[in-house]
Computed example of a mutant assay.
Amino acid sequence: MKHLKTMLAAAAIAGAAALPAEAHFQLIYTPNANLEKPGEIPILLLFWHPFENGHAMDMAKPNQFFVVTKDNKRTDLIDKLTPVTFKGKENSAAAWQTKFPVRALGDYIFVLDPAPYWEPTENHFIHQITKAYVNLGEAPTNWDQPVGLPTEIVPLNKPTAIVAGSTFSGRVLTDGKPAADTEIEVEYLAAEPDLATLTPKKPTVSPPPGGTLVVHTDSNGVFTFGIPKAGYWGFSAVDAGPNKKFKDKDQEEDAVIWIHANDLK
Rank of each mutant, 00 (worst) to 15 (best):
V214G: 01
A196V: 13
D194F: 05
N123R: 15
A230M: 05
D254S: 13
Y133E: 09
G211K: 00
N220C: 04
V102F: 09
T75D: 14
P146V: 03
Y29V: 05
T167L: 04
G241F: 01
K5M: 15
H3A: 15
A196P: 09
T217S: 06
Y232K: 05
T199N: 15
W48K: 07
H24I: 00
T204G: 06
P155S: 07
L195G: 03
K61Q: 11
L112V: 04
E40M: 07
W48F: 15
L4Q: 10
M7S: 13
K201P: 02
V147I: 10
T160H: 11
S219L: 14
S219W: 13
P159Y: 07
Y117A: 00
H124Q: 15
F86D: 05
V172N: 00
P114I: 06
L77V: 09
Y29H: 08
L105G: 13
K5N: 15
S219Q: 10
G54N: 10
P178Y: 11
A164R: 01
A240L: 05
T75R: 11
V67W: 02
I78M: 01
P208L: 15
Y108F: 14
G231N: 03
F65T: 07
A14M: 03
T167N: 08
E152Y: 02
I126K: 12
K158P: 02
M57H: 15
L27F: 06
T174Q: 10
F246I: 04
A93C: 06
A180E: 07
H3M: 14
E138R: 13
I259H: 07
G148H: 02
L27H: 02
N157P: 03
A196I: 15
I162K: 09
L19Q: 08
V111P: 09
D79C: 02
R103C: 12
W258L: 14
D250M: 02
F246D: 05
Q64M: 05
T130R: 11
T130L: 00
L136V: 05
E152W: 02
Y29T: 04
V214M: 03
D254K: 01
H127D: 06
V111F: 01
V163M: 05
T141G: 09
W258H: 14
K202A: 15
T6I: 11
A180D: 07
E183F: 00
S219F: 10
L173M: 03
L136S: 04
I184L: 01
E138K: 12
F168M: 06
V102I: 13
L189R: 03
A93F: 06
I78T: 06
L4W: 13
F25M: 00
L105N: 10
D248A: 04
T199I: 08
I126C: 11
D113P: 06
Y108A: 06
Q145D: 11
